[in-house]
């Protein structure tokens, strides 16, 4: 590459930069507010949809889930009775059901949010 060629390229670069520099970046003029308003609306709408989906999901899944928890706790109780021969778990059955539901809830909420 000759010095003349490099000089030409530099001059063209400079000229192109000057061409673009003549057009300033657009001023904000409320643009940021418009974007943030749209984002706030989206966030509110998303929260509402998640809440509605959660209510609907719980409504649909409540009965089968309760059945599942009862079955699971019966199974666990049977296993414990078989293993240690004492049926002490039956009195804690509601507690066990609650614990299982409490463990499942964050997983369900995370799934809905995703």
């Amino acid at each position: 590459m000759s010095d003349t060629h490099n000089g030409d390229v530099a001059r063209e670069d400079q000229a192109l930069r000057a061409l673009f520099a003549a057009v300033p970046e657009p001023a904000d003029s409320g643009f940021t507010d418009r974007v943030m308003d749209r984002i706030s609306t989206r966030v509110r709408r998303r929260r509402l949809v998640i809440a509605l989906a959660a209510v609907l999901g719980v409504g649909i899944a409540a009965w089968p889930l309760a059945q599942l928890v009862v079955q699971a706790s019966d199974g666990i109780r049977a296993l414990v009775v078989e293993a240690i021969g004492v049926d002490w778990l039956s009195q804690y059955r509601p507690l066990l059901a609650g614990a299982v539901l409490a463990l499942l809830t964050p997983v369900l909420v995370a799934l809905i949010e995703e």
């Binding site: 673009f20 057009v23 970046e25 657009p26 001023a27 904000d28 643009f31 940021t32 974007v35 943030m36 984002i39 706030s40 966030v43």
Partner: peptide, 30 residues
Amino acid sequence: QAAFGELVRRYQGRVRGYLVKVAGNAALAD
């Protein structure tokens, strides 16, 4: 959201400047 708003304020000129030049139409670029 406030932090993101500040980022929008800082970069809107660059993004809009780019898009208005490549799209050739201010309304579309906006």
